[in-house]
Amino acid sequence: MSLTDKKYAKRIEAAFAKYPDKRSAVMPLLYLAQEEYGWVSPEGIHEVAELCGLDPTQVRSIAGFYTMYSEKPKGQYWLHVCTDLACALRGADQFYAELLEDLGIQDGETTADGLFTVEHVMCLGACDRAPMLQCNFHFHENLDRDKMRALIDKWRAEAKQHMKTSGGSERAGD
């Protein structure tokens, strides 16, 4: 499978329709590539380059500049915890330490089952609702350890369910 798959045709077309210059579509298309491959893989880079008429070097450069494109494989659930100043003042560091402890991994690592990749990030614009985390780009706010555990359990169950129904061939969403 790849971005040339029919299921992306409409969204690719929509991305190009927004801008007078094809190059501008590189960011939306990189998100598509990430969705398709689970990360911004070399195939994804080459396909985006081809689509936008850019050199693969330029596309990789863009992918490397922005933090929301992952240039390495990651877990099904990509968790971002804000530990920036405003959140840190409200206990985010401790919250993050607890999350790592519960998952048994270090900052930036992926759980052995491939489910969770965890990173601490800079301010996400939710400072008044700290501690918070973002999972596959969706916000979860006003958390504490219990709420966090409930979320993790929910995602685990969801992934298990998904494995059963899809034969494990596809990635679970959030």
Partner: peptide, 15 residues
């Protein structure tokens, strides 16, 4: 091109 940013900025080629 450059890869990454800030002090991690590095020259790369991906062709």
């Amino acid at each position: 091109a450059f890869h990454e940013r800030g002090r991690s900025l590095q020259i790369i080629t991906n062709s």
